[in-house]
Design a binder for these strands. Structure first.
Lengths: 224, 224
DNA sequence: GTCTATAAATCGATAGAC
DNA sequence: GTCTATCGATTTATAGAC
């Protein structure tokens, strides 16, 4: 079955157009990337389909050959965001067996993906445009989000078992993810004499989860 | 100078109509409360002035006798939110002298204000509708927000001095506020067999900042 | 201070030529 | 697959009667 963009008789059972067939569909990918950036800068509601089309050199009407409607664009952006963070999170955790190493790696993976990863615009849209989804749209995205949170829960539970963290790990999971997700509200990557995403990540890790293996040669040690 | 709603020759120097004159202006207050609730439920962009007017029993045109434009309503909502949390935060801190007590009190004040306080709709709008403000609007709100964050910084610095917390207190401040602010993304107050805002607050405090004086007779002790 | 009525602009989405 | 052209609905905000 070749790639067939936006045929009305095909119900959108999957968010992504099917990873099995290797259809490049570069136009669609280009649109999703541009949409992610605009949604982060302006928000979903304030981004018009005209702006979106212009960003990739199209007329507004041509958008609807690739997507049925505006919400489907948001869905594609969000799916890209959550899939990126899941894939990188799994890879980060798989590199270690020690609970402390795994927790630190997952923490770093989340922060870097969120602050400067390839899908960081998409992930920010995922986090902050939740309300713009229809109930049907949420159903699809919530499945992916829950899978990612389950990964965190598992890593945190192992860390608690090892005595690395204390207290209710379900609450800790939500609090830690919240503290990280909130960084996009104030962190400015290219600010002069400001810190980089990697520096911030190491300092935050050392302050929030002390006792974990810290630093990848980033000049930590004292946090002054 | 009596209350004079929305006279064009009066530049809006203050966000609130001036607390000095005791003008009730109950209609305006009513509008701000209704707007806060709608902004939280639907978001600022998706809330129309028609819905807003209907919520207080007005026609849409009558709104603009009380507010110059839609953004001015958002500004009033945000100002109400930040002023409430500043007032309650200051009061909570003022009750104690011990750094541990002050930090715990400020934590509780923030959580309760955010989750079920009188201005919690307004505070949520403040946190999540930042992008809908014009640059001029942000300038006014950021002053109030910075005052509140300075209170947190001061309390956290005292706690660090006393050895209650460790690490970079500026990063800790942002992380803790982020973790708390994120709770509105998942906490559901009236969920059956769910926890109350007060229960969640105590469990979160115990898990996130262990070693602080915990519990106001809420049955804490073990977090099971 | 609230109403009715509507201006003026913009929105998402469609139709049909090429 | 992209274009031009536009529909129809909806938006914020205004004008003037009462």
């Amino acid at each position: 079955m070749p790639a067939k963009p936006n045929t009305p008789e095909t119900p959108a059972t999957s968010v992504t157009p099917n990873a099995a067939d290797a259809s490049p569909d570069s136009r669609r990918d280009e649109l999703v990337s541009a949409a992610a950036r605009l949604f982060r800068e302006l928000g979903y509601e304030r981004t018009t389909v005209r702006e979106l089309a212009k960003a990739v050199g199209l007329q507004s009407g041509s958008l609807f050959h690739h997507f049925r409607n505006k919400e489907e664009i948001l869905m594609a952006v969000m799916a890209q965001g959550i899939e990126a963070v899941i894939r990188l999170g799994n890879a980060a955790v798989a590199r270690y067996t020690d609970p402390a190493d795994r927790l630190a790696a997952l923490f770093r993976s989340h922060m870097i993906t969120l602050l400067e990863g390839v899908g960081h615009d998409a992930m920010i849209a995922l986090l902050y445009e939740w309300r713009s989804l229809s109930p049907q749209g949420r159903e699809q995205i919530v499945v992916l989000r829950d899978a990612y949170e389950a990964l965190w829960q598992s890593v945190l539970d192992d860390a608690a078992q090892a005595g690395l963290v204390h207290g209710d790990t379900r609450i800790l999971r939500r609090f830690i993810l919240g503290g990280m997700n909130w960084t996009v509200q104030w962190f400015q990557p290219q600010s002069p004499n400001g810190q980089s995403a990697a520096e911030l990540t190491e300092r935050m890790l050392a302050s929030v989860l002390p006792g974990l293996p810290s630093g990848a040669g980033l000049g930590q040690g004292d946090s002054r």
